[in-house]
Design a protein around this nucleic acid. Structure first.
Length: 379
DNA sequence: TCCCATGATTGTTA
DNA sequence: TAACAATCATGGGA
């Protein structure tokens, strides 16, 4: 749960403390008259068209505090919803956020009404005073207008305080809510599987392109930055403890190899019946590309021919790579770590990093199209 | 309650 | 600016 009751009370106290002093310090009778005197003195220093006020208004509007009520759809809530991948876990947090925002909104509007009422009352009061004074001295309409102007300006500045306090309260609420996003939620098993599949089928170059990240994010119902985080963590943790991940690597390799084998078999069959330049019916697997003609190229690659500059379909390519790993493995390949590994750490260079991710020939295919990913042909 | 796994954050580097 | 490395903080199993 995001907030305890104590936390909720604490927040409410902060909000109330932020919202109320501006009002209660200024509104009552005699104080107002004294205040007006100071207003008259200080009025000349005022500069009404205030950009800060505009900013405050915009923010309050954007947060749904002022203006028409949004269905809790503040920027923060929307952002959080996006970041959470729309998980139902966050619906409670959203409603919590909405409830508190509504509270702030209510307080804001109540206080605003009070301000306006007090402003009107005080204006009337001053007008009466002036009217009484007019019996003893001449008071021009201009003077009255000036007085009313001063009062309104001063109340506007008080209003600004209220707006500032409200913004502050929203910011506090928002930061608390955003902090809540730090709460770690394990990805779904399916999501982890998809990510692992990609990682292990691109083990020699586990750097998904932006397009691939987007694709993965979509498939896993997480954000692109979460995909980036995941790959960042995975690369480092894999590198740090390759031995530990061998079993997992084998698992995914075997899984991908089965898919690859099916794809290759289909391609072989297709190759026998179709011209090489004729696109076949497509590939299977998680990261398919529509460019099914790649399969033929990959078949050549699998047979040991080097095919430079081909339009490599990432998914099929990776599957073929995996298959090749498996073929090698069945030939008794050992990586010297003692593990019976399908994958070996030879993907990592002497510096402990992966082979240069930015310029491997297999990655920089000039015709790599949208939706393609870094392919794994370097081993 | 402990411990490990893991998602997120932060500072650094190229 | 992306990736790395270290670290934090939470989830979840034993």
């Amino acid at each position: 749960m995001l907030h305890t009751n104590e936390n909720a009370d604490f927040e409410l106290k902060i909000i109330l403390r932020l919202l109320c002093p501006a009002l209660h310090c200024h509104v009552d009778g005699i104080f107002l008259i004294l205040y007006l005197v100071s207003c008259i003195r200080g009025a000349q220093e005022e500069d009404p068209p205030d950009p800060q006020l505009m900013r405050l208004d915009n923010m309050l509007l954007a947060e749904g505090v002022s203006g028409p009520e949004k269905g809790g759809g503040s920027a923060a809530a929307a952002a959080a919803a996006a970041a959470s991948g729309g998980s139902s876990d966050n619906s409670i947090e959203h409603s919590d956020y909405r409830a508190k925002l509504t509270q702030i909104r209510q307080i804001y509007h109540t206080e605003l009404e009070k301000y306006e009422q007090a402003c009107n009352e005080f204006t009337t009061h001053v007008m009466n005073l002036l009217r009484e004074q007019s019996r003893t001295r001449p008071i021009s309409p201009k003077e009255i207008e000036r007085m009313v102007g001063i009062i309104h300006r001063k109340f506007s500045s008080i209003q600004m305080q209220l707006k500032q306090s409200t913004c502050e309260a929203v910011m506090i609420l928002r930061s608390r809510f955003l902090d809540a996003r730090r709460k770690r939620r394990n990805f779904s098993k399916q999501a982890t599987e998809i990510l692992n599949e990609y990682f292990y089928s691109h083990l020699s170059n586990p750097y998904p392109s932006e397009e691939a990240k987007e694709e993965l994010a979509k498939k896993c119902s997480i954000t692109v930055s979460q995909v980036s985080n995941w790959f960042g963590n995975k690369r480092i943790r894999y590198k740090k403890n390759i031995g530990k991940f061998q079993e997992e690597a084998n698992l995914y390799a075997a899984k991908t190899a089965v898919t690859a084998a099916h794809a290759v078999a289909a391609a072989v069959q297709n190759n026998q019946t179709n011209s090489p330049t004729t696109p076949n019916s497509g590939s299977s697997g998680s990261f398919n590309l529509p460019n099914s003609g790649d399969m033929f190229m990959n078949m050549q690659s699998l047979n040991g021919d080097s095919y430079q500059g081909s339009q490599v379909g990432a998914n099929v390519q990776s599957q073929v790579d995996t298959l090749r790993h498996v073929i090698n493995q069945t030939g008794g390949y050992s990586d010297g770590l003692g593990g019976n590994s399908l994958y070996s750490p030879h993907n990592l260079n002497a510096n402990g990093g992966w082979q240069d991710a930015t310029t491997p020939s297999s990655v920089t295919s000039p015709t790599e199209g949208p939706g393609s990913v870094h392919s794994d042909t370097s081993n």
